[in-house]
């Protein structure tokens, strides 16, 4: 029994040591300050989820970096923004996408459901503070442990190659994931039927809380911050959330600049679906946006 306990302890000690060393290496190397340094010409930062990721083609917007990521809740955006801002004093303005779907309760899933945790923990657990890690653990202990243990191994490769691939991602257009798919009639008819939904709106307090933190952090650092709504298809009905959305904007972000480009005219062939532009739509919109912010 003694020998068995000793052997098991030694084996567990080896595993624990590997894990501790791995955690330490990831903590110290993965987002080392010089890995998040941007070139000096980037003074505008765009953040948010898939809408801005696909709407802003930085080939057409001066001095701008688009770090928006599909499926990213504000909790993760906050920590990412903090890291980038802290290490890039040249950033003078931050645009944060704020659309109707980001106030909905479903956003909680973007923060801590199994699928999102798998991606987000791997990408940026190193950036999260204890409070955020605790929140994720409390909301979904199994999902958190699974995602965390997997990321410890998944990130090993990132320690030595492409350490900064995630944080330096420049919007979806630069990595070539967008395409020329256009919204079709089937999707449009689906949108029309959505109008008739009997919608019982619940709000994601966590998502809004972390958006407030992003705004406050920027303000504390004397960086201009602007909430922005990028174009959506005219058939995409937001009326069932619009009242609440505007109320939140009015009450929780009353001193924050607000830029509403939801109704910017984009032809149907510029939409990939009702909420996302394709590269054609992104080009038209980004040219307009460039003029809008540089006039």
């Amino acid at each position: 029994m003694k020998k068995f306990c000793k052997d098991v302890s030694v084996f567990l000690f080896i595993i624990t040591t590997i894990v501790v060393v791995d955690v330490f290496l990831q903590k110290t190397l993965l987002f080392k300050d010089n890995n998040v340094k941007l070139t000096k010409n980037y003074s505008i930062l765009i953040l948010g989820h898939s809408h801005p990721a696909q709407a802003y083609d930085t080939n057409y917007i001066k001095n701008t970096i688009n770090m928006a990521t599909a499926g990213e809740a504000y909790l993760y955006t906050y920590f990412k923004a903090k890291k980038v801002i802290d290490n890039n004093s040249q950033i003078k303005k931050v645009f944060v996408e704020f659309t109707n779907n980001q106030i909905e309760k479903g956003m909680d899933n973007w923060i801590w459901d199994d699928v999102h945790l798998q991606y987000r923990i791997k990408e940026c657990w190193v950036l999260l503070d204890n409070e955020a890690l605790q929140l994720l653990y409390n909301k979904n202990p199994t999902g958190f442990i699974n995602a965390f243990s997997k990321s410890l191994f998944d990130n090993l490769g990132r320690l030595f190659v492409s350490k900064n691939a995630i944080i330096k991602r420049e919007g979806i257009h630069k990595i070539g994931a967008t395409d020329e798919i256009s919204i079709n009639n089937k999707q449009l008819s689906k949108l029309k039927s959505r109008k008739n939904l009997n919608y019982d709106l619940e709000i994601s307090d966590y998502n809004i809380f972390y958006l407030q933190k992003i705004v406050k952090y920027c303000q504390d650092k004397h960086i201009e911050v602007c909430l922005i709504r990028s174009p959506m298809h005219k058939n995409y009905d937001v009326s069932f959330t619009e009242h609440k959305f505007k109320e939140i904007l009015r009450t929780k972000f009353k001193n924050v600049e607000w830029l509403d480009n939801k109704d910017f005219p984009i032809p149907d062939k510029g939409f990939q679906d009702s909420e996302h532009l394709n590269s054609y739509g992104a080009k038209i919109y980004s040219q307009y946006f460039n003029k809008q912010i540089n006039k």
């Binding site: 080896i14 595993i15 191994f153």
Partner: peptide, 19 residues
């Protein structure tokens, strides 16, 4: 031999499928 067991543990974490 222990190294081999560690590799198996590594595989379990690294290649874990969806639960």
């Amino acid at each position: 031999r222990w190294m081999f067991y560690l590799v198996i543990v590594f595989f379990i974490f690294y290649f874990a499928g969806k639960e």
